[in-house]
Amino acid sequence: MTDDTLSAEDAKLVTLARATRARARAAEGAAVRDLDGRTYAAASVRLEHLTLSALEVCVAMAVSSGSAGLEAAVVLTGAEPDLEAARDFAGPGVPVHLGDERGRIGRSTST
Rank of each mutant, 00 (worst) to 15 (best):
L47F: 03
A41Q: 04
R104P: 06
A26Q: 04
E48W: 15
R21F: 08
V32A: 03
V96S: 01
R46C: 08
F89D: 03
G93N: 07
R46Q: 15
D82A: 09
S110T: 10
S53L: 07
V94A: 00
D4M: 12
D4V: 14
L98D: 02
V96D: 00
G106C: 05
D100Y: 03
D4S: 15
S64K: 14
S7F: 08
A85W: 10
V45S: 09
D82N: 15
Y40W: 11
D100H: 05
L13M: 02
L47H: 15
A43Y: 02
A42M: 05
A54Q: 01
A31Y: 04
A11R: 13
G91R: 06
T109A: 12
V96Y: 00
A54R: 01
H49A: 13
S53E: 03
S110D: 15
L98W: 07
A68G: 14
G106I: 04
A31M: 06
T51L: 06
A41G: 08
A41C: 11
L50E: 10
V94Y: 03
D3L: 12
A11G: 06
A8F: 09
P95W: 01
C58L: 09
T2D: 09
V96G: 04
S44L: 07
V59Y: 11
T39I: 12
S67P: 10
T51D: 11
A17G: 04
L70D: 06
D88T: 12
V74N: 00
D10H: 13
R107V: 01
L83K: 12
D82S: 12
A90I: 05
P81F: 02
R102H: 12
G66I: 08
L50T: 08
V96M: 02
E101L: 11
G103N: 03
G91N: 06
A31P: 06
A43D: 00
A22V: 12
T51N: 13
R23A: 15
